[in-house]
Design a protein around this nucleic acid. Sequence first.
DNA 1: GTGGTCTAGACCACC
DNA 2: GTGGTCTAGACCACA
Lengths: 128, 128, 128, 128
Amino acid sequence: MKFKNDRPIYIQIEKFIRENILKGKWGSDDRVPSIRELAVDMEVNPNTVMRAYSELQDQDIIYNKRGIGYFINENARKKVMQQSKKNFLQKQLPQVFNQMELLNINFNELEEYYREYETKGEDNETIK
Amino acid sequence: MKFKNDRPIYIQIEKFIRENILKGKWGSDDRVPSIRELAVDMEVNPNTVMRAYSELQDQDIIYNKRGIGYFINENARKKVMQQSKKNFLQKQLPQVFNQMELLNINFNELEEYYREYETKGEDNETIK
Amino acid sequence: MKFKNDRPIYIQIEKFIRENILKGKWGSDDRVPSIRELAVDMEVNPNTVMRAYSELQDQDIIYNKRGIGYFINENARKKVMQQSKKNFLQKQLPQVFNQMELLNINFNELEEYYREYETKGEDNETIK
Amino acid sequence: MKFKNDRPIYIQIEKFIRENILKGKWGSDDRVPSIRELAVDMEVNPNTVMRAYSELQDQDIIYNKRGIGYFINENARKKVMQQSKKNFLQKQLPQVFNQMELLNINFNELEEYYREYETKGEDNETIK
DNA sequence: GTGGTCTAGACCACC
DNA sequence: GTGGTCTAGACCACA
């Protein structure tokens, strides 16, 4: 896995897990990859994966069965959805709209960009 | 001034300067606050303001007259505008659109949020 | 059975056995549940129950008849009583008294809490 | 500093900080020792201190000023007091009373133990 | 000077 | 096999 340099790796791993939950790849009580496994897979140190998992556990997204592994919590999807949506509406969007004001971009232009993005993305969607 | 903890303070100061240029508060050859002044104002270490100014100077946004102060460069607004727009289109927007996919938010909803933001913001605009 | 996550499961199983001996539920030469039985009952791995039993056997609290099962040792109750009392007086109590100091709780308050606990517990006792 | 073997060192460091707050050694906005400093002092790895501080920060007991250090949060004492008291009343005490039942220890005996502890501790108190 | 992230690797407890 | 803790040490960003 390729990581970006602007944010800590463990945050990006967290995000990776969250996105897989959102996408429905892992459901309630499904087991997530073991720390070592994921560490090898992503070519990072187990400690780094561990840190990501710990944070997710603190937020009740995943839970641990001693000696067995980590599992998706019952309400994980709902919770992640709420968190993400809240962040999107209260942080991300206002910033974007504010930036639009500063850059004199109106909503019609935004729509153009959206349509452009939409068509570019189509290939991927059908593959999935 | 209150800074967020997730990004370096000097970056947030840079952003503050950039936004004031975009808003037209400071035009060509206008003097920006002195390092000391701004440091006191924002309750940060002068070194931190210094760093922000240095970066802006490196990008030809502001220039320095020794012993006098820092001033807005001639093409500053144009330059900031370009940089911001590029960042907006290539970084910010794609992330937002991507997040919309994950959260199952379509463009109509986005428009609703925009209208909401628009009306809420009106008060501020008249004050300015 | 629900286990707490802060201590090993096998320790909690040990404690469960010890408490039943103290309560008089199991007397000398009584048979304790088989490893399999208890494992199913508590939804844990048989190895884990095994470990608890081994420890108890090492301490001469229970003994094993091969192919038949585990049984309470003759002096088990006396022994458990001694161990528990020692632990209570030398570990648990000093910690509590120390904590009382930090929290500015005096002995009178402690008595109140005790009376409260006493009355609350009455219901259970009659049921048993 | 001497650590016990039954609990993780970082937990014991956390407890150390908490107790110093309770004792009034550090008040609001006081600076706590730097990570490196405390690490040397306690003869542990900086990472271990770091972990303790991170947890305390997550619980809003301490906060961080970038590049400067960690400081006691405004309501830290109140918060720590509440947490400790809650833990004492809801976890520690019930266990003790329960154990007293099992061991056939009545409240009068408890008082004896308390008086004993009280007199033993007097020396230390006058020294402090 | 401060904290933050990460690696490599060890050792342990638990299941 | 699993996770959890800890060390030693490096490197970086920040004030």
